[in-house]
Design a protein around this nucleic acid. Structure first.
Length: 257
DNA sequence: CCTACCCTCAGCCCCGTTAG
DNA sequence: CTAACGGGGCTGAGGGTAGG
């Protein structure tokens, strides 16, 4: 197997899921490689994420190779122990520049180019929280409890449309589940703190809906599943920046795109 | 009453500036 | 040079109003 060293700006950390294959939690991580476009890094062990303290907007150096069992062009496997944080984008201006660089006006572009990752600055139309029973913890051989889907009982859904409607949102809007780690963690955190389900819902809604919609410029990092690539898109990452003060007359660049 | 929408405020950290 | 100050960003808490 030949490995290629790449620098990747991390833009996406999805919620951890149990991998039956690797017997540990893996995180779907994605970002953009210097001059090479999008990369999906999977499996990316949660332990590595925590030990290396990889955060969104970090630049990591990693050795990658094309997986044999994943048809999506952006997917890469990572070499054990090769992840290193080498830098970080701090400035707001720079972040905005990068987001503007990678943002696409419509899902159609990624579909046409047969890509499985894209960035969209969506028109957020609605937001829903669906609750179900929490999966009971299971036990591994060495006695450590785990859940296969630690965030599976809380499902966050956005209704949205592309800035320039694609063929799907022309006739309605997209409904996508949000797997952004931070967003899912927020619900857990607030629920643990207040213990009140209703209260938690209101707060999560305020943050993830109203603030995303009205107070911030928000971008969705969207990806497809391995099993059915390009059929169903999910939100794998949420990126937002405080909306810049502007005259009521002037509008965002996307209005002119 | 409840929901959707929108706003404010306090606290913290970071960082650049300024007074000593 | 250092310590103090203060502004801005960010987070988390909360509130208010209009309209069904």
């Amino acid at each position: 197997m030949s490995w290629e060293k790449e620098s990747i700006l991390v833009l996406v950390k999805a919620a951890p899921n149990w991998s039956n294959k690797y017997k540990k939690y893996e995180i779907c991580t994605a970002g953009v490689a210097e001059n090479n476009g999008w990369r999906r890094l999977y499996p990316f062990p949660e332990s590595v994420m925590l030990e290396e303290d990889v955060r969104v907007w970090d630049i990591i150096e990693v050795e990658t190779t094309k997986p044999t069992d994943d048809p999506r062009t952006e997917s890469r496997k990572i070499r054990n122990g090769s992840v290193k944080v080498v830098g970080r984008i701090e400035s707001k201006k720079e972040k905005r520049r990068i987001l503007a660089d990678y943002a696409e006006s419509s899902l159609g572009i990624a579909l046409e180019e047969k890509r499985s990752l894209t960035l969209i600055e969506p028109n957020i139309e609605n937001f829903k929280i669906l609750r179900s029973e929490r999966e009971p913890p299971q036990f591994t051989l060495n006695g450590k409890p785990f859940r296969k889907h630690p965030y599976g009982d809380v499902k966050l859904y956005y209704s949205w449309s592309c800035p320039k409607c694609c063929t799907y949102c022309k006739s309605g809007s997209h409904t996508s589940r949000c797997f952004d780690w931070g967003a899912n963690l927020l619900f857990r955190k607030l629920l643990r703190k207040s213990g009140d389900e209703k209260d938690t819902r209101i707060k999560v809604r305020n943050k993830l809906h109203y603030e995303m919609k009205y107070d911030n410029d928000t971008w969705f990092a969207l990806g497809t599943t391995r099993q059915r690539p390009w059929k169903r898109w999910m939100i794998v990452g949420l990126l937002w920046m405080k909306r810049e003060k502007r005259d009521s007359k002037t509008r965002t660049l996307t209005d002119f795109a």
